[in-house]
């Protein structure tokens, strides 16, 4: 009989790929910001407000946010798996990480669309 551990890694390849794809999304978003800042010679308050009022910018920023949170989940889970040996403690830390990340996601959406 195979003894399975509830927090074992049976999803390796999918997460490995997701880690890379989300990384590329974030790298492209970083370049977008660099281009905006260079094109406008810096970012002042009015440009900042205008960007966060733009529907396309909001969607692209949401994509960045989702990529960031997914990427952070994979990375943090890797760290917990490598260093935290007791299963109960690891499971607790993983759940805590998910709770924090989902909270961040809510905050993120609220920043983009929650201000009327």
């Amino acid at each position: 009989m195979v003894k399975r551990v509830i927090v074992g890694a049976h999803y390796g390849l999918k997460d490995w790929l997701a880690q890379r794809i989300t990384a590329i999304v974030m790298a492209v978003y970083t370049l977008l910001w660099l281009a905006i800042a260079l094109y406008n010679g810096g970012v002042d308050y009015s440009l900042w407000r205008a960007l966060f009022a733009n529907a396309a910018f909001k969607i692209v920023t949401l994509l960045f946010g989702l990529a960031l949170l997914w990427h952070a989940w994979i990375g943090m889970r890797d760290i917990w798996m490598d260093y935290i040996k007791p299963t109960a403690v690891r499971l607790m830390l993983e759940v805590l990480t998910i709770v924090v990340l989902v909270g961040y996601a809510g905050w993120f959406v609220q920043l983009l669309w929650g201000r009327g």
Binding site: W48, F52, A72, G75, M76, I79, W107, F108, R115
Partner: peptide, 30 residues
């Protein structure tokens, strides 16, 4: 690995907080 953990623990909340504060008003941006 260390930089990734630091970005998760401090970077993301600081970024969210900063964006929130900066968008509130011109005064809060300043």
């Amino acid at each position: 690995r260390i930089s990734g953990a630091a970005l998760f623990l401090f970077g993301i909340p600081l970024l969210l907080w900063a964006v929130q504060a900066s968008l509130a008003s011109a005064d809060s941006f300043a």
